[in-house]
């Protein structure tokens, strides 16, 4: 039976803070889900008119296109320093950085740790997919032991390239951060939990509580050379063993 459009009720829509700019992400990539969650959070908190997003270098370099709020494209690894500059210039702005693992946990190590240590009242979204996506699947600081990448074709050998860095655990050792958590997006249950965590991380900032970090385990089917469904299973079965989910700091 054909249904008249006029009889239909809209129960799910694009968040106002999410633009309709064309996505540049690959099929099965989790960046899209995460982008939507952030836009939805901005809507729910009613902060779009005072939010400034900081885009990284990497697959999320175009992040400034997808949010209907002010945005800055930062140099590789420096997003947390740029966020510091914006927030200090106007503490009433809501400032979030969106950074991949190469950006946040490798080339931006110093900026990432010290923004957290100063307890900057910002929200950091740290996307951990264990690989450099945009440049062609090279080893990330977060790559798993044995993980094959284009720069570890035999698999990551810890004797030569070290171990996967648990950056959120490092941040959690600091006294200033109020909220540090690791989330995942491989099924509906975890998407819901991640959504709650991101809302908390933004709410902390609105309430001037201080620095919040949400690490998100994300799938990169393209560079993992897996089907999207297998990439999700890989996070649930394998990645989670190295990167345990849950709150590391919750002083909110």
């Amino acid at each position: 039976m054909p249904v008249d459009v006029q009889d239909m009720q809209k129960i799910f829509a694009r968040p106002d803070s999410l633009t309709d700019a064309k996505s540049t992400y690959c099929p099965g990539c989790h960046h899209g889900i995460l982008t939507r969650i952030i836009a939805q959070t901005i809507d729910e908190l009613g902060i779009a008119e005072r939010t400034v997003g900081i885009a990284p270098v990497g697959c999320a370099v175009f992040a400034y296109r997808w949010y209907r709020c002010d945005a800055i494209q930062a140099a590789h690894g420096r997003a947390s320093a740029v966020a510091t500059g914006v927030k200090r210039a106007d503490p009433n702005l809501i400032v979030f950085s969106y950074q991949g693992d190469g950006d946040f946990a490798s080339i931006g190590t110093a900026e990432s740790i010290h923004a957290a240590n100063r307890g900057e009242n910002i929200t950091v979204i740290f996307v951990n997919n264990q690989v450099y996506g945009m440049t062609g699947g090279e080893m990330a600081p977060t790559s798993l032991v044995g993980q094959k990448t284009t720069t570890t074709p035999q698999g990551r050998d810890p004797k030569l390239f070290g171990y996967p860095i648990r950056f959120s655990e490092m941040i959690a050792q600091l006294e200033a951060p109020v909220y540090v958590t690791r989330q995942a997006l491989y099924d509906t249950k975890h998407i819901k939990e991640a959504t709650k965590a991101i809302k908390k991380a933004f709410t902390n900032q609105v309430e001037k509580k201080g620095y919040s970090l949400v690490e998100v385990l994300a799938a990169c089917p393209t560079n993992w050379k897996m089907k999207p469904i297998d990439a999700n299973i890989h996070i649930a079965k394998v990645v989670k063993k190295t990167y345990q989910l849950g709150d590391l700091v919750n002083r909110g």
């Binding site: 800055i72 140099a75 320093a81 510091t84 500059g85 200090r88 210039a89 106007d90 110093a110």
Partner: peptide, 26 residues
């Protein structure tokens, strides 16, 4: 006004980048 002793020269210039973006003299 804001004074931050940055963790590095890179951080300092990028804080300037952020503050300049927000429209203040920096």
């Amino acid at each position: 006004r804001t004074f931050v002793q940055a963790e590095s020269e890179l951080a300092a210039i990028n804080m300037v980048y952020g503050a300049a973006s927000a429209g203040v003299r920096t």
